[in-house]
Structure formats: structure tokens, C-alpha cells
Nucleic acid binder design. Structure first.
Lengths: 239, 239
DNA sequence: CAGCTTATTGTACGATCGTACAAGTAGGCA
DNA sequence: TGCCTACTTGTACGATCGTACAATAAGCTG
């Protein structure tokens, strides 16, 4: 519940090292034997991702991010502008995984084997997330997605609307081919429950404590159980 | 990610208007025809509950709470001490609902009709929450529970451990009588998914936007669908 | 009335926050 | 050589935060 009133953004130009701009090939001169000095912009991005994922967007300060990246505070603003833009940039860099989910779901809508279709939809929807979560570089981002989805603040909800509304649309549309007679609202509720389960799969820390470390999210059998749970839930509600 | 270092709490005595102390029968003198002046302590408590539920613990300042309650800031500290104690007091005032859940679940463990037992367990576990959520005075608290469960901050996790670990224990213990052959970890994962679904049921704001207002959580049929979803999920995973 | 306890208020301290801004450095190209 | 651009840094401003504290008001008990 903040009420910030500051001058509007007047930053002249910001380096766009991401996609279209020149591929950021400065710093080519490095002493022989010296490891290529890591990109400080990337350092900031990874630090922000890790910290946001662990503590939530609001609980992490720009100074925390800069400290973890080992750069002065002002460099964060230089590369990413305001704090909400930094959050958005993180999600932009991870869009590939999201687009894979959408395209896999949409592909199922056209080719319909009519058999075990639901399970395929659930897999197409959840599997990229679980795979990302299991990878070493993506585990913090999958956690960040959950934190952002649960964050009631305006910055987080804006991110969710922008990046994940298309996924919901694709999922529901394909799901309607599997359950043509199920009312739309019921599908929506079932989707909510599935999202809740998936977010808990990816983000909950409590299960580690409750199981005394025996329950690990990396086990493929756990994912198979997850698919079973969600698939059966959908079937029970809509069939 | 804050690092506060202040003097330890040296407040002498704080009014304990809640449970054991004298029932707070001051302010008995009111002019005839004048409505009994509302308890300002209660006002603060309700304001805090509503604001924490809507924006999350960290995003709400003590000043926000005082402003909503119409009292000066210092009164919050006078009645509740530090901010984490205020959060804990809210949960203490709502413990009745939690204890109902636990006792209902435990009651099912002794009398076992062996038939439809799982559905009864799920109902005993979820129904008090849904009923509280549907009531006018409890809808903000059920939202607060979800926000707190999802909050990675230390204050929130302390609350969850203190108040909800007994519920998990009761649920799992009773569940083991229904699925004697299901491994413990699998039950734990299924419980996680069920919690995720329940929290989404209670707290998610996105479904209102996605359904354009047509999906209402108050509908009893929605709760029946929820029970179906979770029950089928458990059965598919553990049976 | 006095005396004590509770309730109430304004205020101020120290800390942390996001963000802007001016000044500085360094490398590529003329 | 000098200039342009990208990168880097220290710092400071205004705002907001949790919390403590002294002082006052109000109500009850004698």
C-alpha cells in the first residue's frame, strides 16, 4: 500500500542488450588466461530472479539485488530502469518455456486421438514447468512464477495478466474439445484447482519440513502422481 | 529482506482484552439512545485482518491499519505491540474454526464406516473453511490464511507452523486409516495438492476476471465440485 | 476531592526504501 | 590525438517504514 509520487521516467536511452540491439560485444579485450568477465547485466538479472523467487517481489530491495550481484545500486537502474520493469524483464527472458506450453496445448486441439486426451493436455500444460523446475537454471524461475501468481500487489498481477492469460485461454479452449458438455465455469474452477496444485508442487517449502527431507520434487514418480491427481480431478468434475 | 536492530520489547503491561482477563467492561456509561461506542481494539483488529488479507502482511503498514480503523498510529502498538504480534493475535481470535476442523477429522479416525470415508475426511477438512469464507465476517480471514500460507516471509511462516502443523498431522493420521497401504510421502504430496486447490478456491482473484464475474465461490454446487476434484485426486494417487 | 489504572495522542528517531543525477572511466573510431 | 558512446560509480533526495516515548485525557475506586 504505497503511494509514490515521483517525476515520470526521463531516462534518455537504456541499453537493450536483450534481443534486437547489437549483441553487446564490448569488453572483447581480456588478458590471456583470464576467464571472460561475466556480463554484469546478466548478473543483476539472475540475482533479481533468485531473490524475488525466494522472498517475493516486495520483500526484496534493489539494494539487495545489487549487493548479491556485486554491483553498485545505480547500475540496476541503469540497465533495467524502475523495479517493476526489472521484474518484467525476467519474465520476458523466460518466455520460451511459456510459449512451449501454449503451442503444445494448442497442438493437441487439432489432432485429437479422442483417447486419453485429457492426460495429454495436463502433461502438455504441466510438464514444461516441471522440467524447468528440475533444471539447475530454472528452479528459481518456476518458484518466482508461483510467488508472482500469489502476490496480490499491482506489479505482480500485471505480470500474470500479461504473460499467463494467453496460457489460460489456450488451456480452456483445448479442454473444451475434451469436455464439450462441461459448462465453462466448471472448467474454470477445475483449472484453478489444477493451478493451485501445480504451484504447490513447485513452490511449497513446507513439504520438505513435514517429510523431514524425504519428499523431493525432482523424482519423476512424483510428477506422474501429480498428473494422476489432476487428471482424476478433472474427470470427476467434468465427466 | 530487512535487518532490524532495535531495542528489545520493554513495554510494561499490555491490555489483554481477549480471553482470560476481565471481560473489558469499561465504557459502560453511555448516554441513552447513543449506540454503544465500538471497541477501538476490535476496530484495529478487524482493519488489520482486512488489509492483511487483501494486500499481504508485508505490504500493509501499521499506519494503513490505524488509518482504516480511524485511530492514531500509536494505539496499534499500545494494544498489540509489534507488528508480528498483531498478526498472531488475528489468528488466535480465529482458532475456533481451526479446532473444529481438527476435531472433526480426528473424530472420523475412530468411527470408521469404511465406506466413503475419504470423502468425509475431505469434507471435514474443507467444509469449515468454505463455510467461514461464505460468512460475512470470515471471508477476509480465509483470504488471510491463504496469503499467509503463500507468504515466504519469516513472520508468516512462523504463523503457519504454529497454527496449521497440528491440522496437517491430524489430516495425515486420519488419512492413513483410509489408505493404510499408501506410502507416507505420497499422502503428503496429495495433501499439498489439496491445500493448493483449497487456497485457490478461497483466495484467487483471477477467476472473477476470467469468468467475467459469473463464477462465484458462494455457490454450494461449487463446493461439491471441489470435493469431487480433491477426492478423486486422492483416490487416483493412493488407491 | 485525590489517587491509580487504563486509554489516547502527537511526535520523533533511526532505518530503509526507490530513484534520480552528476561525475567519472574506458574502449572504439575518426 | 580527441571525440563519442557505453559503462560505472558515489551520493543524495524525498518518502515511508516500525517503534518507542512522554504527555495528556478519561474513568474507576477510595
Amino acid at each position: 500500500m504505497e503511494t509514490k509520487t515521483r517525476k515520470a521516467a526521463t531516462r534518455a536511452v537504456r541499453p537493450e542488450a536483450g534481443g534486437e540491439a547489437p549483441p553487446r560485444a564490448r569488453r572483447s579485450k581480456l588478458a590471456p588466461g583470464e576467464a571472460s568477465r561475466p556480463d554484469r547485466r546478466q548478473d543483476i538479472l539472475e540475482s533479481a530472479e533468485a531473490l524475488f523467487a525466494e522472498w517475493g517481489y516486495a520483500a526484496v530491495s534493489v539494494r539487495d539485488i545489487a549487493a548479491r550481484a556485486g554491483v553498485p545500486v545505480a547500475l540496476v537502474g541503469y540497465y533495467f530502469g524502475r523495479k517493476p520493469e526489472l521484474l518484467a524483464t525476467i519474465f520476458e527472458h523466460r518466455q520460451a518455456n511459456l510459449e512451449e506450453r501454449i503451442s503444445r496445448i494448442r497442438a493437441l486441439a487439432v489432432a485429437r486421438p479422442e483417447d486419453a486426451q485429457l492426460e495429454q493436455i495436463v502433461r502438455a500444460w504441466a510438464e514444461p514447468v516441471v522440467r524447468l523446475h528440475a533444471s539447475s537454471s530454472g528452479t528459481s524461475f518456476s518458484l518466482l512464477v508461483a510467488r508472482t501468481a500469489w502476490d496480490p500487489g499491482p506489479e505482480a498481477t500485471a505480470i500474470i495478466e500479461r504473460f499467463y492469460d494467453p496460457l489460460v485461454a489456450a488451456f480452456l479452449e483445448t479442454l473444451r474439445t475434451a469436455f464439450p458438455d462441461c459448462p465453462h465455469e466448471r472448467l474454470l474452477w477445475a483449472y484453478e484447482y489444477a493451478v493451485g496444485a501445480l504451484l504447490m508442487y513447485v513452490a511449497d517449502k513446507r513439504i520438505e519440513r513435514l517429510s523431514e527431507g524425504r519428499a523431493t520434487a525432482g523424482d519423476p514418480a512424483v510428477f506422474e502422481d501429480f498428473v494422476r491427481f489432476v487428471t482424476a480431478g478433472f474427470t470427476a468434475m467434468c465427466r
